Simulated scan of single mutants.
Amino acid sequence: MAVLTASGLLALAAPAEAQAAASCTGRKVRTLPFSTGTVHVYKQGRYVCAVTLAKNPGRERTMSVSVQARGHRPVVRKDKRTRRISTPLVYVGNRCVWVKGSVSGGSVSSGWILC
Protein backbone atom coordinates (compact mmCIF):
# COMPACT_ATOMS: atom_id res chain seq x y z
CA MET A 1 0.00 0.00 0.00
CA ALA A 2 2.85 2.40 0.82
CA VAL A 3 4.37 1.80 -2.61
CA LEU A 4 1.08 2.66 -4.33
CA THR A 5 0.72 5.81 -2.26
CA ALA A 6 4.29 6.89 -3.02
CA SER A 7 3.87 6.27 -6.74
CA GLY A 8 0.63 8.26 -6.71
CA LEU A 9 2.38 11.19 -5.04
CA LEU A 10 5.17 11.07 -7.63
CA ALA A 11 2.61 11.16 -10.43
CA LEU A 12 0.99 14.24 -8.89
CA ALA A 13 4.35 15.95 -8.50
CA ALA A 14 5.40 15.29 -12.10
CA PRO A 15 5.69 18.43 -14.27
CA ALA A 16 3.27 19.01 -17.15
CA GLU A 17 5.99 18.16 -19.66
CA ALA A 18 6.42 14.67 -18.20
CA GLN A 19 2.65 14.21 -18.18
CA ALA A 20 2.55 15.20 -21.86
CA ALA A 21 4.93 12.37 -22.67
CA ALA A 22 2.39 9.95 -21.20
CA SER A 23 -0.01 10.75 -24.06
CA CYS A 24 2.68 10.40 -26.76
CA THR A 25 5.27 7.66 -27.02
CA GLY A 26 8.82 7.94 -28.31
CA ARG A 27 11.52 10.51 -27.71
CA LYS A 28 10.97 14.25 -27.71
CA VAL A 29 12.54 15.73 -30.84
CA ARG A 30 11.21 19.31 -30.84
CA THR A 31 9.70 21.90 -28.52
CA LEU A 32 7.75 24.71 -30.17
CA PRO A 33 6.87 27.49 -27.69
CA PHE A 34 4.30 30.21 -28.36
CA SER A 35 2.55 32.92 -26.35
CA THR A 36 -0.21 30.78 -24.82
CA GLY A 37 1.40 27.33 -24.78
CA THR A 38 3.95 24.88 -26.11
CA VAL A 39 3.88 22.02 -28.61
CA HIS A 40 6.09 19.00 -27.91
CA VAL A 41 6.88 16.70 -30.84
CA TYR A 42 7.76 13.04 -30.23
CA LYS A 43 9.15 10.48 -32.66
CA GLN A 44 9.09 6.71 -32.43
CA GLY A 45 10.63 4.99 -35.45
CA ARG A 46 8.63 6.16 -38.46
CA TYR A 47 5.81 7.60 -36.34
CA VAL A 48 5.34 11.11 -34.94
CA CYS A 49 3.01 12.42 -32.25
CA ALA A 50 2.48 15.96 -30.96
CA VAL A 51 1.05 17.44 -27.76
CA THR A 52 -0.13 21.01 -27.22
CA LEU A 53 0.15 22.15 -23.60
CA ALA A 54 -1.54 25.28 -22.27
CA LYS A 55 0.81 27.79 -20.63
CA ASN A 56 -1.72 28.47 -17.86
CA PRO A 57 -3.91 25.36 -17.44
CA GLY A 58 -7.13 25.56 -15.51
CA ARG A 59 -9.96 27.11 -17.44
CA GLU A 60 -11.45 25.39 -20.46
CA ARG A 61 -10.54 26.88 -23.85
CA THR A 62 -10.19 25.85 -27.48
CA MET A 63 -6.97 23.91 -28.15
CA SER A 64 -5.67 22.19 -31.26
CA VAL A 65 -2.73 20.18 -32.53
CA SER A 66 -1.92 18.67 -35.92
CA VAL A 67 0.74 16.55 -37.59
CA GLN A 68 1.04 16.40 -41.38
CA ALA A 69 3.44 14.16 -43.30
CA ARG A 70 4.55 15.76 -46.58
CA GLY A 71 2.21 14.65 -49.36
CA HIS A 72 -0.56 13.60 -46.95
CA ARG A 73 -3.48 15.23 -45.16
CA PRO A 74 -2.92 16.52 -41.61
CA VAL A 75 -4.16 14.59 -38.59
CA VAL A 76 -5.93 17.26 -36.56
CA ARG A 77 -7.34 17.26 -33.04
CA LYS A 78 -9.35 20.29 -31.86
CA ASP A 79 -11.47 20.50 -28.73
CA LYS A 80 -12.19 22.54 -25.61
CA ARG A 81 -9.69 21.44 -22.98
CA THR A 82 -8.09 22.73 -19.79
CA ARG A 83 -4.52 21.44 -20.03
CA ARG A 84 -3.46 19.50 -23.14
CA ILE A 85 -4.48 17.87 -26.40
CA SER A 86 -2.52 15.34 -28.46
CA THR A 87 -2.55 13.53 -31.77
CA PRO A 88 -2.36 9.76 -32.05
CA LEU A 89 0.85 8.29 -33.46
CA VAL A 90 0.93 9.32 -37.13
CA TYR A 91 2.86 7.23 -39.67
CA VAL A 92 5.21 9.59 -41.52
CA GLY A 93 7.77 7.15 -42.89
CA ASN A 94 10.86 9.10 -43.95
CA ARG A 95 8.87 12.22 -44.88
CA CYS A 96 9.17 15.72 -43.48
CA VAL A 97 6.39 16.74 -41.10
CA TRP A 98 4.56 19.99 -40.40
CA VAL A 99 3.29 20.46 -36.84
CA LYS A 100 0.81 23.09 -35.67
CA GLY A 101 -0.67 23.87 -32.29
CA SER A 102 -2.88 26.50 -30.71
CA VAL A 103 -4.36 27.53 -27.37
CA SER A 104 -6.96 30.31 -27.37
CA GLY A 105 -5.53 33.10 -29.58
CA GLY A 106 -1.90 31.94 -29.66
CA SER A 107 -0.47 29.44 -32.13
CA VAL A 108 2.68 27.98 -33.64
CA SER A 109 3.46 26.41 -37.01
CA SER A 110 6.73 24.52 -37.46
CA GLY A 111 7.26 24.58 -41.19
CA TRP A 112 8.68 21.34 -42.62
CA ILE A 113 10.82 19.62 -39.96
CA LEU A 114 12.41 16.24 -39.26
CA CYS A 115 13.49 15.91 -42.90
Rank of each mutant, 00 (worst) to 15 (best):
T31L: 09
A14F: 11
T38V: 15
C24A: 01
G37N: 05
T52P: 02
A20G: 12
T31W: 02
C24M: 07
P57R: 08
A16E: 14
S86F: 07
A22N: 02
W98V: 14
V76T: 15
K28H: 07
S66I: 05
R59K: 13
V48L: 05
K55G: 03
G37T: 02
A14R: 14
W98A: 10
S107H: 14
S23W: 02
G93F: 10
T36W: 00
S107C: 12
K78Y: 06
R81H: 06
K28I: 09
R27V: 15
V108F: 06
S107Y: 15
A6F: 06
G37A: 05
A21G: 15
A54F: 06
N56E: 07
T82F: 04
R59C: 02
M63R: 00
S35K: 09
G8T: 13
I85T: 05
W98D: 04
C96L: 03
R61M: 14
P74W: 08
Q44T: 10
E17G: 12
C24S: 09
T82K: 15
S107I: 03
V97M: 08
Q44M: 09
R77Q: 12
Q68F: 08
R81T: 06
G105E: 04
A16P: 01
T38D: 10
S64E: 09
Y47I: 08
A50Q: 01
R84F: 11
P74Y: 07
T62V: 13
P57S: 06
N56P: 03
V48H: 05
S86M: 03
T31G: 12
P57V: 07
A50V: 01
T38Q: 09
K43N: 10
G71A: 07
L12H: 13
R73E: 11
K80I: 04
Y42W: 13
A14T: 13
V92M: 08
V51E: 00
V48C: 05
P15F: 04
R77P: 05
V29L: 12
K43T: 07
L12I: 12
T87E: 07
E60R: 00
R84Q: 11
G37F: 01
V67W: 04
R81C: 01
K80D: 04
R84H: 08
G8Q: 12
V41F: 01
V29Q: 09
L9G: 01
A13K: 14
S64Q: 00
A50K: 03
C49Q: 05
P88F: 09
C24P: 04
K100L: 08
G106P: 01
R70I: 03
A11W: 13
S64H: 06
V48Q: 04
W98G: 02
F34R: 08
V97K: 10
C24L: 12
K80H: 13
R30M: 14
S23M: 07
S104H: 15
A69K: 07
R81Q: 12
R73L: 09
A69Y: 00
N56F: 14
V67I: 03
Q44E: 14
T38L: 14
A50C: 09
A16W: 08
R30S: 13
K78Q: 15
L53S: 08
S102L: 11
A50E: 04
G71N: 06
M63C: 05
C96D: 07
G26F: 08
A22H: 09
A13M: 15
R70G: 06
V75A: 10
T82I: 04
C24T: 01
Q68Y: 02
Y91G: 12
P88Y: 04
T25G: 15
V108P: 00
M63K: 00
